[in-house]
Write a protein that binds this DNA or RNA. Structure first.
Lengths: 107, 107
DNA sequence: TTGGAATATTCCCGTAAAGGAATATTGAGA
DNA sequence: TCTCAATATTCCTTTACGGGAATATTCCAA
């Protein structure tokens, strides 16, 4: 797992943008209006999201239409899979660890 | 989705720590040694992870044993679920958007 | 009860990054 | 071609944060 995706999503305004785009593609102006964020900031955040591959642009005349790319989410999901055992496991692995430590100490 | 989990995970060293703890609980010293990060930095990162609820501590004499908490991962997974349609949908919603815009213009 | 091991905390410094304001760029239509 | 609307970029300032080094804290064992 590389950190660029997580980093891009960790900024509150950018996360808001992503959550908004979840509903469908939008122009910069629409995002700016809906989220009450000044246009330049929106553009900047979209650039970060774009560089991280989270978003793609489609030029339509004057407007730039932004939409989510599926890849990073698929990737994130795959990464999360490797943690699934952590919350599916019944037993508390801490007990095991403590026993291990005790054994080492007895040697 | 709140941003503290993502923020905590977005730092490379912290992500490494989390990935290491995926295999099981560890003490500060073990983490420090395995990842070749100085102990104070490890403690600092663990504090951030702890504040974010990603990690829990268990005091054992001198040592502090850290282990992952499942909640944030479950939460993250639930959040990702809401994006699942994005990559499962066959049709490109961009086309829809462009048609909408065209219709608006014709009014 | 004192010393040492394990861990946490503090202070300082440098850098990255976000917001504000102004400005540049691009495209369509009159 | 000129202008306006939409968007991107730049410059500046401020703040947050990570690393290094030193120090404080806590606990066990001798």
């Amino acid at each position: 797992m590389d950190t660029t995706t997580l980093n891009a999503l960790s900024e509150p305004n950018r996360l808001q943008i992503v959550e908004l785009l979840r509903e469908g593609p939008l122009t910069v102006g629409e995002i700016s209006e809906r989220l009450q964020i000044r246009q330049p900031q929106v553009s900047k955040h979209l650039r970060v999201l774009s560089n991280a591959g989270i978003v793609r642009v489609h030029a339509n005349a004057n407007r730039r239409i932004y939409q989510l790319r599926p890849e990073p989410f698929i990737q994130l999901n795959a990464w999360l899979e490797s943690y699934r055992r952590i919350w599916e496991e019944r037993f508390d692995s801490l007990d095991d660890y403590l026993k291990e430590m005790q054994e080492k100490q007895e040697k």
